[in-house]
Amino acid sequence: METFIHAYSWVDIRFLLQGLWVTIYVSLISIALSFVVGLILGLIRYMKIKYLSAIVGFIIDIIRNLPLLLIIFFTYFGLPQLGIVTNPTSASITALVIFEGAMLAEIVRSGIGSVDPGQMEGARSNGMSYGQAMYHVVMPQALHNMIPALLSQFVSLVKDTSLATIIVLSELLYHAQIIYSQNTTYLIPMYVIIAVMYFIICFCLSQVANYLQKKYNN
């Protein structure tokens, strides 16, 4: 018990909170950007544009079937060979956006697919252009349908930020590792507290997803 009290001294907690902030910050930016990327790629896939949709679909399939860890390595070690200097933060965000963007694209595609095609036809026959119909009629319903899947993907994204410790992104898990590698009696207290921190963030997000799912089902 005493170990726990020592381990949770203000100095350590503050250090962990700094890591937590990086986790949240990287997650938020990645969620925002990957949502945009997913939306665009999902639309392209759905619209079946000649060649473009097939190529985009192929790339999405490749990315979706690779481990995120590998994509993190590619962005951290690979992008610089194309002349783009990366640091752990930008490399992690880029990797998360690429990976989660591809995952979200699938959700978006099937979300739009779930909207009755009659809606689009109806909107078009009322004089709307394709873009207008998509934006005003189809998209709002599609987004509504895919909210639960989107949110659970965002939960995955938050958890996945922990993988970036491998390129020394100074996020929550990495900060915990620094503390317990300097005083190994803190091993258990550190894992307890970071598990709780991750749990609180992800559980709240999951609950929102559950709530929306129930609301939608009714």
Binding site: L33, V36, G83, I84, V85, G131
Partner: peptide, 27 residues
Amino acid sequence: MKKLRKYLFLPLLVLLAFTLSACGHKD
């Protein structure tokens, strides 16, 4: 649609600028 486009492409441009800004260290 115009509005949609504006919202979608702005962040992408930022991303592009952010990645291109760090070019050209070789040799």
